[in-house]
Amino acid sequence: MPTLKPGDTFPSDVTFQEVPTSRYIPWSEESGDITSCGIPINYNASKEWADKKVVLFSVPGAFTPTCSVNHVPGYIQKLPQLREKGVDIVAVIAFNDPFVMSAWGKANNVRGDDILFLTDPDAKFSKSIGWADEASGRTGRYAITIDHGKIGYAGIETDRAVVKHSGVDAVLASL
């Protein structure tokens, strides 16, 4: 598949391996601790996002400096503004396994399904749209908005450790 661009249709066969969240495993004090593990379940993004407004952003790796300091916090802080713009789902993907992504969500005090922390094993999705990092084979740093199956915005970072086209401000400006 070529790179996604505004006006394209979101692929009909995208399934991410998702970390447990309250949407699938009810959140409780016992499972809310960063050291608690749940059982990963598959997440059929094509089905779940078909009739919703979605912001999907991708980072090269959980717990890395740029991702943890400059990328994810902006989406957490501006989640109310995204909701005001009609966004139903905010999801972040990374190359990491579901247990790391779950811990990263918990480390950022994300509870429930405010932001889905999904895994893109082997950068399968990112490679399918041409946005995996060629040097490392990991997911690239990018953001996509999907409105009822149609791509509204698609921005990728071409410089290392930069959050400009994939950051929450660029996404908010596009909504």
Results as ranks from 00 to 15, higher is better:
P60M: 11
K78S: 10
P40I: 07
S102G: 10
N70I: 04
G140S: 08
S126L: 08
V92N: 00
I25H: 15
R83W: 05
G7E: 13
T21D: 13
N70A: 11
F125H: 06
G149S: 10
S31P: 15
D120E: 10
W131N: 07
T66V: 12
K5L: 02
A173R: 13
W27I: 14
Y142W: 14
F10D: 00
L175M: 15
E30S: 11
W49P: 00
S136A: 07
L79M: 07
N96I: 02
P6H: 07
W27R: 15
P80H: 06
P2R: 06
A161E: 13
S166M: 05
P65R: 06
G167C: 10
F63E: 04
G86M: 09
N109S: 12
P73K: 11
S126W: 04
G74N: 01
A50E: 05
S58T: 10
T35Y: 07
K106M: 05
V162G: 05
I41G: 15
D114C: 13
G130N: 06
G105F: 00
V171D: 00
A45F: 06
D13I: 04
T21I: 12
N44C: 13
L118M: 14
S174F: 04
K124G: 07
C67R: 01
V168T: 03
Y24G: 08
G32A: 09
T35E: 12
S28M: 11
A161W: 11
A173I: 07
Q81E: 13
D122W: 13
A62V: 03
A45D: 05
A62E: 02
D51C: 08
D147Q: 07
V59L: 10
D122K: 13
G32H: 05
V100T: 08
V110F: 07
N108K: 07
A107P: 03
F57S: 01
I144A: 06
N44T: 09
V110C: 14
P60H: 15
D120A: 09
A132V: 08
V59E: 01
G149D: 06
Q81F: 09
T145K: 04
V100L: 05
V110P: 04
A107M: 08
G86H: 12
A94W: 01
M1N: 12
W27F: 15
K124Y: 10
G74W: 00
P80W: 03
P73A: 11
S166N: 06
K164W: 08
A103T: 02
D114T: 10
P98V: 11
V110Y: 04
W27A: 09
G149C: 11
L118R: 03
Y24C: 10
G137I: 12
T9I: 13
I89D: 01
H165P: 14
D113V: 14
F16W: 12
F99E: 02
A123Y: 10
K47Q: 15
A62Q: 02
A170G: 13
L4S: 05
E84R: 10
L4P: 03
G140E: 03
F95V: 06
V162M: 14
V168K: 00
F10I: 03
V90R: 00
S22E: 15
L82S: 01
Y142D: 03
I146L: 15
V171W: 00
I146D: 02
V168P: 01
V14T: 04
N109F: 14
P6A: 09
S136T: 15
